[in-house]
Amino acid sequence: MAVTNIVIAGLGGQGVLTASDILADAAFRAGFDVKKSELHGMSQRGGSVTSDVRFGDRVLSPMVPPGEADVLLVLEPTQSAINRGLLRHGGVLIGPEIIPEGALRNRKSLNVAMLGALSTLVSIAEEPWMAAIHANLAEKLHALNEQAFALGREAAAHRAA
């Protein structure tokens, strides 16, 4: 399979890195070669954060080349415009507005809800997604985030229909 390129963008504290950890882990569990990378440090003090995840038969660079992202997943509306240039021609931008305001029991699970929306576009089965959510989050958060994932998946399917 050709390499799938995903960029997740948001602000420090929104769970961008957790989301990319879950996505990379799900792709890894699905048997793909995976690389992911991002910048830590200063970016975590409320500043802009992006994380790149790439998976396929064989991945070389850990960074998504600008203009080659298949999907840009944006957790914060202000981060859409500044990252749009990362998308390839015909690439898909998924913004936080896809998750209806008030639909989530806890807005902190927006990152996982967004992964649910992303899951309709990538070839990773549900089982590795669930395993990755469980492996990367504390047990008390599992049920909440499973619901968030399902909600995001439904919202994206609804929009596509």
């Binding site: 409320g46 202000t78 500044i82």
Partner: peptide
């Protein structure tokens, strides 16, 4: 080189 648009800078919590 193309200059990416500036992101939100970090700040004291």
């Amino acid at each position: 080189e193309p200059v990416p648009p500036p992101g939100k800078p970090p700040e004291l919590c």
